[in-house]
Each structure stands twice: as structure tokens, then as C-alpha cells.
Write a protein that binds this DNA or RNA. Sequence first.
DNA 1: AACACTATCAACCGCGAGTTG
DNA 2: CCAACTCGCGGTTGATAGTGT
Length: 351
Amino acid sequence: MGRAPCCDKANVKKGPWSPEEDAKLKEYIEQHGTGGNWIALPQKIGLKRCGKSCRLRWLNYLRPNLKHGGFSEEEDHMICSLYMSIGSRWSIIAAQLPGRTDNDIKNYWNTKLKKKLLGKQRKEHQARRASYLKQDSMKKSNSIPLVIADHGMQTPYWPPEPLMPISTPYPNQGNRHNDHASLRKLLIKLGGKFSDDYQQEPNNDAKNNLQLPIECSSTTYQQFNDQKSINLFSSSSSMSSLDIPYSKLLTNEYNIEGASMHVLQGLNGFPVEFDEMICSNPESLDELECHYGVGMDNGVSSSGPISTESTTWDDMGSFINPPNITNYEALQQEVIQECALFDQSRYLGFQ
DNA sequence: AACACTATCAACCGCGAGTTG
DNA sequence: CCAACTCGCGGTTGATAGTGT
């Protein structure tokens, strides 16, 4: 038995909204508000629309102060940074971009940003692979640690062992555990720490197995520095806002232990593109490590782009290869903490 | 000019979570 | 405690505009 429909599908109009419908809805909401019940709204106005459709139309199109199209570089940067940190939690990402809707950002990501990133990565992969082959032959000849010159790294780095093809690629589920294990390995290097068995005991010890970074760098991306606080709740949400002074996010003033498990869940839901990249392209994990400079011991010593190509934000190079890895990691850690606070606040009943 | 292909984005759908009685 | 209901979210679809051949 299926779920009951939210409205009578037979008597409900679907498809694009007419200017008359828009005007009716806008006028009514501006005068009376939503009345706290979207389902009843269309009947009150005399619209043959589903309540959910009215809500969506209002939030994504009719609501005042909305911006459409023309994402700025800062917004691109923000979206990518947040996506890398928290995944496809579009409503949270949208809450950081005034005037943008989650739907807008989601569309923008799916149609433009993702392609930009993957396209850029593909190009760099080829260049890097050529570089590896060269370095590998050097390593075999003298067996001493290499310093990759164009990384500007000072930490010794051994190129990876010859890569074995993954025999059962995604979507076959057989290797997904291994892939997640690899991702976890990467994530450990990126900042958090996972025990080997967290997946077996997600409800018990998981929160203890992920240790959030103890320190956050005081250096962050400029756009975050500029903010006095971060509103973690979407303006369209029924939840009330919780503004956390941003300075507090940089310290351990908040006890986040109780929320760690939820951070873990967020990480477990790491952007699926990474899964796919890794499964369809076995070398991609090494690529990612390379991107973030985590292929070496502690993963914090990289300071420059890997590629010799332009690193301007125009071609997303500055995101793929952050100009300052310390800043990037700080940002990532901070966003993870934001999510922990977000989830914790919901637990503590701040809504 | 006609057709095929691609990109874009508004809108829909189904699900999980929260609320209410 | 439970069922019914609503809301909000993220994934997906489909119409249309744009571009290439």
C-alpha cells in the first residue's frame, strides 16, 4: 500500500505557473502570510495547485529579495567549499548565500560547477600522471624520498605503488566498502580520525571514533572571516535561527562530543562524485590525496598548486588546489564543526 | 532551414522528520 | 504510544532554449 497523496492529483494543475497564478499567490501571502498550512492555502486562494507546489513556487521564485542566475566568484567558491565539507546539504549551503535558494544552488552545482571541477581534474590528472611516471623511474633508480618541485613541498614524498585496477567497479556494491575505507583513510588525513570499526558500531562508539580536529587554524577564507556569525538555518525553514558567534567556532568553547556521531554521518555521506571518481578511476584517490597534499606524512605541509596551469578561480584551480592548504583545512574543519553545532543544537532543543 | 544534440532550470516526486490529536 | 498529517529536503524529470551540423 502506497503513501497517501498530499492532494487530489486529478483536480490539481501541474506544470509551469502562469503570471496570474503567481500574482494571486504572491498577493495573498504578502497580505495574509501562509497561515502555517500550505496544504490549505491553494483552496483559500482559489488556485488549482498542490500546496507543496505553492510552497515551492513561493520559496524559489516569488519570495522577495531573491537573486537569480549570475553567481559570483565568491559564491562559486563558497558553494564548492561547503559542498566539499558537508556534501549535498543544499539548504544549509543556501543559508550561507543570501538571496539564493537551495534549488538554485543545486541546479547550478549539477549543471555548471560540478562539470567545471571534474573537467579541471581530468586535465590535471593527465599532467600529474606524466609527472608521476617520471618521478617513479627516478625513485627506482635511487630509492630516496622525492620532493615534488612544483608542489613547493618540503616534506619528503614517495609516489604511490603501481596502481591496481579495481575489479568490480561501482555501481556493483561489492567494492563499496573498500572504497569507503579508502575515503575514510583520506578523510583521516584531511582532518578527522576514524576507527576501523565505526561502521560496525555506528550507534555506539562512533562518536568516540571520530575525533574532530582539536585546533582550528585562525586563518580562514576571507569570506568566513568577514562574517561575525553563521546562520546555520535556512531562512525558509520553520526553525528559528541560531546565530553562533563565529569566533566560538574557532575554539573548543562548545562541547561537541554529543554531536560527533552526526558529523560522522555527514562524512559518511561524502559527496558521491568522489565515490564515483574513485570507482571509475582507481587513481583518483591518489589524485585527491595529491590535490590536498595529504599524500605525505601529516598532510599539512603543502602550500602550492600541483598544476602548473592557471590557478585562478575562473578555472576552479584555486579550489581543486587551494593556494594555501592550511586555510583550506581550517575552513573544512570549521564547517564540520558548524554541522556538529547545528546537529547538537537540534538535540538540545534550540529550535 | 531542418534536425539533432546539449544545457538549463522550474517543477515534481518521494521520503524522513516533526507535529498534533 | 500511535496514526494521520504537514513540512522541508534532496534527487530527478521534462519542457524549452541554445548551439552545432
